[in-house]
Simulated scan of single mutants.
Amino acid sequence: MPGMPNGKPAGKPCIQLLSDFSCAIFGDPSRPQVCEKFMPEEDICGKNKEEATTILAFLEDYTCTTNTKSP
């Protein structure tokens, strides 16, 4: 990930995320494959930005390597 050589830690915004929530490197060959191949689905993205933020925050917290909580 350009600007994040060790990857994006859970709970931290991507350094390439702009203030309007668009990707600064969209379409750039340096954009990671995981981002390039991501296909939005309602289970992950919800029905709107608010739902997406809530769902993604939960998933990041749940999958964080320092997470000690159970679902």
Rank of each mutant, 00 (worst) to 15 (best):
D43G: 07
Q16F: 04
I15H: 01
I25K: 00
G11H: 04
E42S: 11
F58L: 08
C35Q: 02
K47P: 07
T68F: 06
E42A: 13
E50C: 04
T63Q: 08
K49Y: 02
P2L: 13
S22R: 04
I44M: 08
G3T: 02
L18N: 09
K8C: 15
L59Q: 11
N6A: 11
K69N: 13
K12W: 11
E60H: 05
D61N: 11
S30D: 14
C14H: 03
S30A: 15
T65E: 14
P32C: 08
Y62C: 05
G7M: 00
T63L: 15
M4L: 09
Y62A: 11
C64Q: 02
G27M: 10
F38C: 05
T66I: 14
K49Q: 03
R31D: 09
T53E: 07
A10I: 00
A24M: 08
Q33V: 15
D20I: 09
M39C: 10
C45P: 03
C23E: 03
I44C: 03
N67R: 07
E60P: 01
C45T: 10
A10R: 01
L59W: 12
L17W: 00
R31H: 06
G11T: 04
C14D: 06
G46E: 01
P32L: 05
T65P: 06
C35A: 05
C14I: 10
K8V: 15
S22L: 00
S70Y: 10
E42W: 08
M1A: 12
F26M: 12
T63E: 08
N48M: 04
F21K: 10
M1F: 10
P2F: 05
E36C: 12
C45D: 08
A10V: 00
G46H: 00
G27L: 12
C14M: 05
S30G: 02
P32F: 04
K49I: 06
M4H: 03
K37S: 15
K37F: 08
P32D: 05
Q33G: 03
T68M: 11
T53P: 01
S22K: 05
D43V: 15
E51F: 01
K69D: 14
E36Q: 15
N48P: 07
K49L: 11
E36I: 12
N67C: 14
S30C: 11
P71W: 06
P29W: 02
T54I: 12
Y62Q: 05
P9N: 11
A24P: 03
G46K: 00
M4Y: 01
K49F: 04
K12R: 14
N67D: 07
G3A: 01
P32E: 05
N48I: 06
T66E: 12
Q16S: 12
K12G: 04
T65N: 10
S30W: 01
L17C: 04
M39S: 13
E51V: 04
P71G: 07
G11S: 06
K8Y: 00
P13D: 04
D61G: 13
E41D: 13
N67M: 06
F26S: 09
P5K: 09
P32S: 06
M4I: 01
Q16Y: 02
I44G: 00
N48A: 03
